[in-house]
Amino acid sequence: MAEEYQIDLGNLMAFDPHHHFPSLPSSREELVKQCLEKGTKLVQAVADALFNLPSTDDPDGPIVTLPQPTTRLPREKPLPKKKPPTKWEEFAKKKGIVQRKKDKVVFDEQTGTWKRRHGYDRVNDDNDIPIIEAKATDEPGVDPFAKRREEKKQRVEKQEKHRLQNLKQAAKVGALPSHIQLAATALPITGTQAVPRKASKNELESVAGMAATSTASGGKFDTKLAGEKPPKHEAKYRKFLPVAEGSGMGSLERQQTEKVLSKLISKNSHEILNVERAVNMYNVKKDKKRSNQQQRKSSSNSGKSSSKLKPKNNKPFKKTSFKKGPSNKGKSK
């Protein structure tokens, strides 16, 4: 009898695929009664199978372990994806670095007590170091405490950067931890749904401003939307001063133009005097002067002796050291 029914104990379901009403009963009560009768039989079949399962006793009643359901029902969400290994995990695997368990508390030799490894009141806390020994390589004027703090800050920032990089990598695969959202999104969670990006307020305002001013009249005659603000003016406003002369405000315009003019002139005045050229000229003049003076001196000297002897005099004067003899011989000739 039980073989007629298909029983799925995992879902506590019984199915009679052979039953067929020869003719539907006319009255509703009759029909329901027949159905319940048939149902009772099926329920009895389920109970037969269920009560024959090995059970463990409990104060509330016998507890049985149900088998896996045979009718498969669809999942509600896709399977969770596996997180890709982080850069460090990849590196550690390559190098064969295995994580060891560390104690939560460590003995602190400075204070002689047991302290936490991380967190508040931890071992080797930067705040606990009263003295840093000076080294020969230390630069004078650098606060070693501030330097330490700065270095720590940089290390933390670096780690944060790496974490973000790893999260990005995980997001690409779709294996982001459920409590983390990258960028601003509307609703979190679920496996595959694309994350809609939300534009920021500033971005929206700038885009709206651009759109509003893109007509020929710069959006002057457009109808404004409710709550629309005029676009922000990024550049400086140009100021026009009164042209009519006077004292105070009236003289400002003159001052301004004079300022510009003097600036221009001073710039050009620098060019009027070509310093390089002037220096050159001065140098050349000086040279000429010196050479003239020298010539005059030499001419006064030659006036005393014969002018023809001058080169001859010069020669021995220059080569006295080794051509004295022969020159004398020559002279004697």
């Binding site: 999942r75 509600e76 969400k77 896709p78 399977l79 969770p80 973000l164 999260l167 990005k168 459920s178 409590h179 983390i180 959202q181 990258l182 960028a183 601003a184 999104t185 979190p188 969670i189 679920t190 496996g191």
Partner: peptide, 25 residues
């Protein structure tokens, strides 16, 4: 720089984790 958003309270985090895809539903 990428923005990350996480629930601010533990309760919110638990609530979000409840909705995450699970191996056994």
């Amino acid at each position: 720089m990428l923005q990350i958003k996480t629930p601010k309270t533990g309760r919110a985090r638990r609530e979000v984790q409840k909705r995450a895809p699970k191996l056994v539903e």
